[in-house]
Design a binder for these strands. Structure first.
Lengths: 354, 354
DNA sequence: CTGAAAGCGCTAACAC
DNA sequence: GTGTTAGCGCTTTCAG
């Protein structure tokens, strides 16, 4: 236990302590801690050894105060914490962010925008100097927080895109193209009546994926029919109910033969609803999702999807933010990551065209 | 833009600034900020207004330094960040933790144990005073970090249990009972040959759920057969491969008629593997998972599971830690949350017994 | 009720 | 090379 005389229970050991023990000033100790030049080899070694032995760790807060930085960044989400953590895709993104951040000695703290009375209260964070930068997970049209952050020239990167914000830094996947390619795949199989279970139209994600759907239809000379866009809600329960009622209330001749869902997360209740009203997937109706969650390949049937480099998106965004904070020159303020179609057995040709 | 003369671009406004503007000392300003007594109503109001107008926010770091607290806690996980964020159950736990913490003005930072060279390096955090407490997500047998934390009398709570640590604070769900009830359900349906796809035996979670499985078997007078315990690995891919090969290499007469899986996360590839070798679920084989992930009810077939209050577990643990940090008396150092069986159509009677 | 002043533990000029 | 010193922005005795 007490192997060292110094190893007292409350080992609140400070720099002053080790300075005294080494018979030098705190400045010297500080120098060796920060690998600064101007310390004799002899002193450097002796002090290093002392630090090692005592297990001394410089006080994080004191350092931060004088350095005017906290080495922590905030991830501010549009979604509630519940929505955020329920989605496998969010997990991949957070993993990317946290991996980069922790490897560089940064921390991150996850916040939901709805924790604040208004959106703008995210400003408290930066006014209180409690973070060095912000990662905005999602942003709305002309996002006021993003606008204010820009005005203040505060380091932040949007994970996703912010329409109406020129020149802001962001990393996004190509949602329009991804959605386009999903629908194109369906069309190539022979489908003509394709529905879309869309995401929230308050978010760029929802808007962009719907847009890709629309364009693919139009480019193929098909009609874009608003009635085939099912705004089903955010939770799986809501989606299940909406989709079920949609299909229950449509005559067979007009029934879509394929569905492109906003993401894999909602594809699960969509398929469940379809099966529950007696439709076979993919025999009666094909389904394709988005994100290619890790589980999708194991579902029954295995779910076709759009593979999106979401983990990489998180990493890229975090790296970009760190560069911004470090004052480095940034070559491209905008990064768009590409997607690709993953065909699986939730896909088949439509019955009629066979 | 410049509606206030003080609203300069770099609004790095400090307490000294507003003290000057209010014609008082910083002490007085500090008092009103902290709602301390000893300020005239007049001053209090004037200063409050000033603070409001200027959008002044006390510096987080400076406060922390003098208060000797950081208002942040660390969540240290046994798993890698990838494993952590891939699991819906982890999301629920994190959500519970973050909800409590942010509502009390705390932050949290998520770390993986494998970020450190050795397990013990989590100590750096506490030596550097960079967190006020620790939430240990998982712990191993006689966990050295937990032991050291205990020795130092450092505030920490284990989410899960630590065998070999008497008197440590923890919040856990009743894994043994939960697993027991899952297997009991299978037995009640008439199953006699029940396999278990187990979790890592390096973790309490894995050990306890296996134990519940074993006990249920023995209590029912059935044989506990080690060959029916499939240690399938951590990732869905591994699980798929292991389970598939297990069932491919077993003669039909000896084949289990039911599987209890470590959790719902692995139940997905388990079912996929079963289907891929031509077994129908539940007709040929029943499956029951654990956790009752939100998706489980929508799977095909809907997956029976053990509902576990994981979100609540996160909340409880966070609340307990906050109480510990606050020096409050804690009535019960150990909290065990109960589970319940959720039967769904992945369950059926075994063919033979019909 | 109010203010002066002493730190919290560290970094970074600036002297020597 | 090394030490002295002045803060970083805030809280908190302690006098008045």
């Amino acid at each position: 236990m007490a192997n060292h005389a110094n190893d007292n229970g409350t080992d609140k050991i400070t720099m002053t302590d080790i300075a005294k023990m080494a018979g030098v000033s705190v400045a010297t100790v500080s120098r060796v801690i920060n690998d600064s030049p101007g310390v004799s080899d002899e002193n450097r070694e002796r002090i290093s050894k002392l630090i090692e032995e005592l297990g001394y760790q410089p006080n994080f807060t004191a350092r931060n105060l004088v350095r005017q930085s906290t080495r922590t960044i905030a991830v501010i989400n549009m979604q509630t914490l519940g929505q955020l953590h329920a989605q496998p895709a969010s997990g991949r993104m957070l993993q990317g962010i946290e991996t980069v951040l922790t490897s560089r000695g940064y921390r991150c703290t996850i916040l939901s925008r709805d924790e604040f009375a208004q959106d703008m209260s995210g400003l408290r964070l930066i006014k209180g100097g409690s973070v060095d930068g912000i990662l905005l997970n999602g942003a709305k049209l002309n996002d006021p927080l993003a606008l204010e952050l820009t005005r203040r020239n505060y380091p932040f990167v949007i994970v996703g895109r912010a329409i109406g914000l020129v020149n802001s830094y962001y990393v996004d996947i190509d949602n329009v193209f991804g959605a386009y390619s999903a629908v194109e795949t369906l069309i190539r199989l022979g489908h003509r009546r394709i529905a879309h279970v869309c995401g929230s139209q308050q978010t760029n994600l929802g808007v962009e994926r719907l847009e890709g759907y629309r364009r693919a239809l139009l480019d193929a000379g098909l009609e874009y029919n608003e009635n085939f866009v099912i705004d089903a809600g955010l939770t799986r329960k809501e989606v299940y109910a909406s989709v079920r009622s949609f299909f229950e209330n449509i005559v067979q001749e007009k029934r879509p033969t394929a569905v492109f869902t906003f993401n894999d997360f909602v594809a699960i209740p969509v398929i469940r609803a379809l099966l529950d009203i007696g439709l076979q997937v993919p025999h009666d109706i094909s389904v394709i999702g988005f994100d290619d969650d890790e589980a999708s390949q194991f579902l029954n049937p295995p779910l076709a999807s759009i593979r999106a480099p979401i983990y990489e998106m998180g990493m890229e965004a975090a790296e970009m933010l760190l560069r911004l904070i470090g004052g480095e020159q940034i070559d491209s303020r905008q990064v768009i990551l590409q997607t690709r179609v993953i065909e699986r057995s939730s896909l088949a040709m439509p019955l009629q065209s066979v």
